[in-house]
């Protein structure tokens, strides 16, 4: 991550694209100025609102606060080396938030992707009717912002308002969706509800792109739909599954809105429940340097995990 960011600004976003060169590039291609004019509208804001903040966060994360003059003195910042990082790594709240989100990811991501995959495969078989209805219904939650989804579900979790709790109550069950053990999974459920259809559609689109001839032969040999699905289809769409996994990992590590909404109705979600909530809490205590270090660490973990996962899967696939 540091690598890309420190290297990036050197090449991109020349504010004044050189105009005077007339020489064309390779076989009648456009001039350098023209190329720059195509690239700059994206790369200028990309540098300003992506790379500069990353650089700024890095810079801040190496600063510490100092103070002069007594009880209500004046503060200033100075270079502090890896002090903030050491603080973050020693912070037990940080590790519990990472552990919580890790548990969340290890369970929620595979469950969600498995359900998505099964649905995509079922939609791709001749076994199912009214496919359009299923497809649209499952995809519908993607149109719902995370905050609103969490608000909707929070009503279904609330012991006073929820018809689900009512119904289970008639069956003699009294689950506490907002209790200390359950609330993490209640948040996970909101994420699953939101993203399963989206992931399903990615996999389904990939399935649709497979030429039918590929499994005609297998069908003629009498292979069951089941066998075709697991032996032929799944391996072919493996890249889509990798992609959805990587996006899910990134999403999980950024989790904020859903638990923040549930926090409004449950005291079992602390102010440091996810790494992002911790960063925000630390920042609102004016400790921006440490919040920056937390952000950098979250980003690093994200990179390591998503690159690591891609490397791992591409090695397995022998690519």
């Amino acid at each position: 991550m540091t690598d890309t960011e420190t290297r990036a600004p050197r090449v991109v976003a020349a504010p004044e694209p050189p105009r005077r060169r007339r020489r064309r590039l390779g076989g009648g291609g456009p001039r350098a100025g023209t190329i720059a004019a195509f690239l700059t509208p994206f790369f200028l804001p990309f540098v300003l609102f992506y790379l500069v903040p990353v650089g700024y966060a890095l810079w801040q994360s190496f600063r510490v606060v100092r103070r002069t003059g007594g009880q209500y003195g004046t503060s200033y910042t100075t270079f502090g080396g890896f002090h903030q990082y050491a603080q973050v790594l020693q912070n037990s709240e940080f590790w519990s938030s990472i552990g919580r989100i890790g548990l969340f990811g290890v369970v929620q991501v595979p469950v969600m992707l498995f359900v998505a995959l099964v649905m995509a495969l079922l939609l791709d078989t001749p076994l199912l009717k009214i496919k359009a209805f299923f497809r649209i219904s499952a995809f519908l939650p993607y149109a719902v912002p995370g905050v609103i989804a969490a608000i909707m579900w929070s009503y279904l979790y609330s012991p006073q308002l929820s018809p689900v709790v009512d119904l289970l109550g008639h069956l003699g069950l009294h689950p506490d969706f907002l209790g200390p053990g359950a609330v993490l999974w209640s948040a996970a459920n909101v994420s699953t509800w939101l993203w399963t259809g989206y992931n399903m559609l990615i996999m389904y689109s990939a399935l649709q792109a497979i030429p039918q001839e590929l499994y005609e032969a297998a069908k003629l040999d009498g292979a069951s739909n089941w066998a075709i699905a697991w032996r032929i289809k799944v391996p072919i769409i493996a890249p889509s599954i990798v992609l959805t996994t990587v996006f899910s990992i990134i999403g999980t590590l950024q989790l904020y809105a859903e638990p923040a909404v549930l926090r409004q109705i449950s005291s079992n979600i602390s102010s440091t429940f996810t790494p992002n909530m911790l960063a925000y809490t630390v920042a609102s205590g004016n400790n921006y340097q440490q919040a920056a270090a937390i952000s950098v660490v979250i980003a690093l973990i994200t990179f390591v995990l998503s690159f690591g996962f891609m490397r791992l899967t591409s090695k397995r696939a022998g690519l």
């Binding site: 700024y56 990134i250 980003a299």
Partner: peptide, 8 residues
């Protein structure tokens, strides 16, 4: 992660 960019 875009949320990591928000605070800076």
């Amino acid at each position: 992660p875009t949320t990591a960019l928000a605070l800076p």
